[in-house]
Design a binder for these strands. Structure first.
Lengths: 236, 236
DNA sequence: CCTACCGATCGGTAGG
DNA sequence: CCTACCGATCGGTAGG
């Protein structure tokens, strides 16, 4: 109704209804990204077609190109968005002061809670990271490196403090810890018998026990999940 | 030369040169599977085309259908072959008697050595397992289950012997251990600075330390890589 | 957001 | 193993 008052109909618009689009466009963009995430997760990036995504939304395939220039760009935005969220999650955890072993425990548990909450996005990230071509890959891989570095540095600090065995390679240890946590995307199911909190707690404890020095094993006690890692602090 | 003596040339063969094919066919099949593994690994199953595989071999795409009925079957054989090899590897390791903690250590180290030796095959297996449609998936997933069960059972035995903490869930522990080891396929590079032996030894040690009970931490000493896990015992 | 369309490529078949 | 070919679908464009 308002649109009748807003302006007279013009025969040929040079651009499609700009005012209506500019406002709704962002919502539609978000909806398209959500649909793309879903389809990429279900079928894999390569097997997913733009037609699948359009069907998910009840629009025409060609309409997607009004919002995104290419399928690759769609993937890129999904990846860039979830890794940014992940980094923010880690930073929030590291803001709370604690000894390196406790920080590491929280990073692992927080990583897993985040993964389970954003399962589709994270699965697409971990599974399709390499499908994105060279140019756009740089920023995403740099962010990924930043993410992993938080684990490596925390492990190094643990070694400096004598809390983590000095005979392990910090990078290798981070890859082990992250691998065990990341792998969760391959088997975790929402509503299944394994609760994210249980997985996070057990995985973090196993990893920390695997790295702790003898001295640390005597004095260190595992923290509780609710401090600093609670999913409610990671609300959208 | 022998083929001139073997039979006269016939104008129109009802089937393509049967004798020559039956012998060479198995070699060609193996070559095609090797090429498919390479291409699936490089581009991913969905992005890989039969044309890519044919190009790798210098033959025509249509010729592939003389040996394999479909692209899916190609994938299926790659997957079935590597998981069978993996199970054989685990069985070989478990033949050598030892306490459950030592067996677990060897399973992990042996798993990683195997993964690094058959990197392309294993990467395709771990990355594309789900790309294979329902019918053919059953046997492969059953084998996968068998594989994982060796880890779960060994952990349960460790718990029964008081060597592994009783407060961990054996399945969850196996998923953690296997995740850390499997993840290697995403970052390991042949000829890189990380040697398979070092990765295997460190990962196995970290995982076992992460699960060992206090009692076990006092008495258990990690085995050497050469006993029972040596890659030379896993020759093709 | 739509209709209409395109060139390229896909897995696969016929027939030898 | 090859030539010749096919229907379907792909990502993407023109133009509104």
């Amino acid at each position: 109704m308002t649109k009748v008052l807003a302006r007279e109909p013009s025969r040929k618009l040079p651009e499609p209804a700009p005012v209506r689009h500019r406002l709704r466009g962002h919502e539609r963009r978000a909806e398209i990204l959500a649909a793309a995430t879903k389809v990429f997760h279900r079928k894999g990036y390569e097997a997913a077609s733009l037609q699948d995504i359009a069907d998910e939304l009840g629009i025409r395939k060609a309409s997607l190109f009004y919002y995104f220039p290419s399928k690759e760009e769609l993937l890129h935005e999904v990846l860039a968005s979830i890794i940014a969220r992940g980094i923010a999650n880690l930073r929030r955890i590291m803001e709370v002061p604690a000894d390196p072993l406790t920080v590491l425990w929280r990073l692992i548990a927080g990583h897993i809670l985040h993964l389970c909450e954003y399962l589709e996005e994270t699965a697409v990230f971990l599974h399709e990271r390499k499908s994105i071509p060279a140019e756009k890959r740089h920023t995403v891989l740099a962010d990924d490196h930043t993410y992993q570095n938080h684990f490596v540095e925390t492990i190094r600090e643990g070694q400096a403090a004598g809390l983590i065995r000095s005979d392990v390679d910090a990078k290798l240890a981070a890859l082990s810890v992250l691998g065990s946590a990341n792998w969760t995307y391959t088997w975790f199911r929402r509503g299944g018998s394994m609760k994210p909190e249980v997985i996070g707690e057990q995985f973090a404890t196993m990893s920390v026990n695997g790295l702790a020095s003898e001295k640390a094993l005597e004095i260190w006690r595992k923290p509780s999940l609710s401090e600093a890692v609670s999913p409610s602090t990671a609300r959208r």
